[in-house]
Simulated scan of single mutants.
Amino acid sequence: MRRRFRRRRYARHRNPTRMRAIERAANDLVRRFRSQCPACAHPGFDVTDRVPGLPCEGCGEPTHVICSEAFTCQACDYRQERRATSPMTAEAGRCGMSSTLSPQEPHGGSS
């Protein structure tokens, strides 16, 4: 008995997951093309680096939460950092120090 693969191959191009991925990629490409460098007006001024270090709300130590994003122009290498998040501090649960504290010790260390 022979299996028919023709129908399966034909249907791949209509896969909804694949179509969403293509749509996201196209939207990303349009967004990048529309973002112009403030220095030279060349298109493609986009995020090239994410800088961690948002301070913990409990102890003030830097966390792994993204603090700012670095935008770089592909043509003139102009670089600009912009704050990535609206809160000024990260939740205490995201702090690396909170995992080293004993359950009885309050967050922020002993005084």
Rank of each mutant, 00 (worst) to 15 (best):
R4K: 14
F45R: 06
G60R: 04
P55A: 08
M19Q: 07
P43A: 05
P52V: 02
A41C: 07
C37H: 12
T63E: 05
A26V: 11
T17Q: 08
T17H: 09
F5M: 15
C40H: 02
F5Y: 15
V51W: 02
E61H: 10
R9T: 07
T17K: 13
Q36L: 14
E23C: 00
C59E: 03
G44S: 05
R32M: 05
D28I: 00
R31L: 05
E23T: 04
D46N: 00
C59Y: 07
P62K: 01
R31T: 11
D49G: 00
A41Q: 14
R34H: 07
C37A: 12
H13S: 04
F33L: 14
A21K: 10
R4M: 12
R18V: 08
F5V: 15
R2N: 13
M19K: 06
G44D: 03
R9L: 14
N15E: 14
T17E: 13
G60T: 10
P38G: 09
R8T: 07
R6A: 10
A25M: 05
R34L: 06
E57L: 06
T17R: 13
R3S: 14
Q36D: 12
D28W: 00
A21V: 03
N27W: 01
F5G: 15
R8F: 11
M19E: 05
E57Y: 01
A21G: 03
C37Y: 09
H42I: 07
G53V: 12
V47P: 02
V47A: 03
F45H: 08
D49R: 02
C37D: 02
F45G: 06
Y10C: 08
E61N: 11
A41G: 07
R20Y: 03
V47C: 02
A21R: 10
V47S: 01
R50S: 08
L29C: 08
Y10N: 14
P38R: 05
R24V: 00
T48K: 03
C59Q: 09
R20L: 11
R32N: 10
P43G: 13
R4F: 14
R14K: 11
N15D: 15
P62C: 03
R34G: 02
N15P: 08
R31A: 14
R12S: 07
V51Q: 14
R12H: 05
R4D: 15
P43K: 00
C56F: 09
R3W: 15
A39M: 02
P43D: 04
N27P: 00
P52M: 03
R9P: 01
A11I: 10
R31S: 05
V51M: 10
R31V: 05
A11E: 15
I22Y: 08
F33S: 11
G60E: 08
C59T: 07
F33V: 09
P16Y: 12
G58K: 09
F5E: 15
